[in-house]
């Protein structure tokens, strides 16, 4: 299989997905979305537009009210996934090492069996020296790195991230953005990334799906063709500015359509 054929393959297809919460709120209606292998897809939109709900539906943490999810795996079952929340969501009572162990532990691996994979995952996020630390002893950015290491320790086919850097300061966020791109390049993981930051989505993504709210739906898709590796220089290119303008414009019209409703 050549590179283009691989790039064109879908990991998962969402068809006509709708989600109505028990209180009657329509979170999503008629949503179609394909996630392609190897891409970095951002879901960009105002808060309450259902973009996190899409992520939860893909993860199997929420059931869609209508529509189907097709996994393109051999047995059509959900492959190994990684999930990163907005908070680092670590277990405060145990060490960084044991936190990263959790997914492997659930899979039945003992600490000794998992050790080398845990160390690898911690090395990936640059936290090799912190295996014995407790989450409390780490900064917000470091905690998020542990959370990413935990999500990657199973080498998932698909990494789902729900506004992971929203609570961090800008300097830390830029640094983690770069680290995330480096990890993605190293591991070749497909990423679906929820954000409400235009700049973050353009910097990271190959494709941006812009959401409008009430009901949540995709109103525009923007391709960011700039090749990887990207670094801070990319923030100063005309292409970056152009993509930001396009994404920003789409987001504004998403908000306008909401105001009319």
């Amino acid at each position: 299989m050549n590179a283009e054929a691989r790039a064109a393959r879908d990991v998962v297809r969402l068809r006509n997905i709708g989600k109505t919460f028990s209180n009657g709120t329509i979170a999503l209606a008629g949503l179609d979305l394909n996630v392609r292998e190897g891409e970095f897809l951002s879901l960009l939109g105002p808060s309450g537009c259902g973009k996190s709900t899409v992520l939860r539906i893909i993860a199997g943490l929420a059931q869609p009210s209508t529509g189907v999810i097709n996994w393109t795996t051999a047995n059509h079952e959900r492959p190994e996934l990684g999930f990163v929340f907005q908070e680092s969501t670590l277990m405060p009572w145990t060490s960084v090492f044991n936190n990263v162990w959790l997914p492997l532990r659930v899979a039945g691996l003992s600490k000794a069996q998992a050790a080398s994979r845990i160390e690898q995952a911690l090395a990936l996020v640059g936290l090799s020296g912190f295996a014995k630390s407790y989450p409390r002893e780490l900064s917000g950015g470091m905690k998020m790195r542990v959370s990413i290491a935990r999500a990657l320790v199973l080498r998932p086919t698909l990494l789902l991230m729900d506004e992971p850097f929203a609570a961090l300061d800008e300097i830390t966020r830029f640094k983690l953005n770069n680290d995330l791109l480096r990890l993605k390049a190293e591991l070749g993981t497909t990423v679906v990334f929820v954000t409400h930051s235009v700049y973050e989505s353009v910097y990271l993504s190959t494709r941006i799906a812009v959401f409008a709210a009430r009901p949540g739906r995709i109103i525009e898709q923007i391709h960011v063709d700039a090749p990887y590796p990207r670094n801070d220089e990319f923030r100063h290119t005309p292409q970056y500015a152009e993509s930001c303008r396009a994404a920003s414009h789409a987001l504004t019209s998403a908000m306008d359509s909401e105001d009319r409703l």
């Binding site: 969501t89 959790l102 532990r105």
Partner: peptide, 22 residues
């Protein structure tokens, strides 16, 4: 933590694993 409960669901943890680990 609800997010940790979600995470264990994602990893298909059994009820007893959820009890023990979380």
């Amino acid at each position: 933590d609800h997010n940790l409960v979600d995470l264990l669901d994602l990893y298909r943890a059994s009820r007893w694993q959820q009890l023990l680990f979380l």
